[in-house]
């Protein structure tokens, strides 16, 4: 019964490593100064033109204003949600936006 334990351990370690990698990446894309307000507006740059999957995820955390090329403009995004969004590796950059 050693195999199930080893596989479980390997899966958990891989998952932990993956989450750690995402968190580190997120911290580099969105610095602490940039999320100083509880609810902010952001310009999110995706590595490619976003698909329904990506837009749906962004719509779930804020008001989607516009999608222009690879940029998505979101308003009223909570600080935690912005940090969570920045963790996704398919996001190139998240920066504050002045809004409409």
């Amino acid at each position: 019964m050693i195999r199930p334990l080893l596989v479980t351990l390997l899966v958990l370690l891989s998952y932990g490593g993956y989450e750690l990698w995402l968190t580190r990446g997120g911290a580099m894309k969105l610095t602490v100064d940039e999320v100083s307000v509880p609810k902010g507006h952001y310009e999110i740059t995706v590595n490619f033109p976003p698909e329904a999957f990506h837009v749906t995820r962004m719509q779930a955390i804020g008001r989607l204003i516009e999608v222009k090329g690879t940029s998505v403009f979101l308003m009223d995004v909570g600080a935690d949600d912005a940090r969570e969004l920045a963790r996704n590796y398919w996001i190139a950059d998240v920066k504050p936006w002045r809004g409409l």
């Binding site: 998952y15 993956y18 590595n47 490619f48 698909e51 999957f53 990506h54 996704n88 590796y89 398919w90």
Partner: peptide, 11 residues
């Protein structure tokens, strides 16, 4: 994978 869809769906 590049677009981050498969990892999320798989998890």
């Amino acid at each position: 994978i590049t677009k981050g869809i498969l990892p999320v769906y798989l998890i």
